[in-house]
Amino acid sequence: MTPRSESSPRQQRRSSQRRFQPAARPSHRRRSTTSGAPKAVVSNNSATLAVAAILLSGAALPSLPSQWRDASSLPVSQPVEGKHLLDQEDVDMVNTLDKEKGITLEDFKLIKMHMASYILKLAQQVKVRQRVVATAVTYMRRVYTKKSMTEYDPRLVAPTCLYLASKAEESTVQARLLVFYIKKLYADEKYRYEIKDILEMEMKVLEALNYYLVVYHPYRSLSPLLQDAGLNDLNMTQLTWGLVNDTYKMDLILVHPPHLIALACIYIASVLRDKDTTAWFEELRVDMNVVKNISMEILDFYESHRMFTEERINAALQKLTLRP
């Protein structure tokens, strides 16, 4: 195992500030408006969305060398227990109870994505670091590989996961503070939950997680990898960091090892910034096909995200409240 202390001084400063990593530069936001994309629901921390949209329209991914070797000795920390990784089809299984209410796979993904944004918004109010957000979103996604949204209302599970993650990541947020900001963020009755609801749900979430609380994230490998590739300038760091943030709008963290997600984000970023990393990737002993597939998944998401409108999310959530 490699020491965890291998990040750049900039990285260190950031993590100690307990702030969110700013996404890409403002100039990209400007470009996003000219690209005429409809106002996306995913707005926070996702300036990279627009960047990738541009990438999609024009840039082609470099062709990959054919002789990618096995993922065996990548010099980054591996997840301690691979058993937490799931197959995509298990993650995409819509619970029977939810199906009966008419929830499609599309709805399922949409609701999870919306809840990831909800967690982020709440987290920004109570000011916790990005890592807590990432852990909370992972908890939420893990819960719904086992439990139905019908029985476990996402609008309660999301803040509960943030509450639990804040404890697990040693940056405890008081439940009453969360309740306060929930009310501030959403006027909608359906989001209204009290402290006792969160505490009750905390126990259920713990059980659904089978008490596994440690989550490994791509952020940790990002810095050493960028440094190794000689791409650890501010621009690339911020871009890749933003890309990693966006991956939590998807289920990637449940399916792929974190360091491969980090590599996929570096891959996309290097293509976007015209950095030639082919030789560097070639030297890594990782299955580049997996990295490429993850990259494609991320790009697919950027392409389709503009279709995720408020109305569609509300329609999906509406189904949950219907009596069958």
Partner: peptide, 18 residues
């Protein structure tokens, strides 16, 4: 204190699971 699962206990669960 309305703070759910005891923080110290949670730490212990988290680490001992690993």
């Amino acid at each position: 204190q309305k703070e759910g699962v005891n923080f110290t206990a949670l730490r212990e669960i988290k680490l001992l699971k690993e």
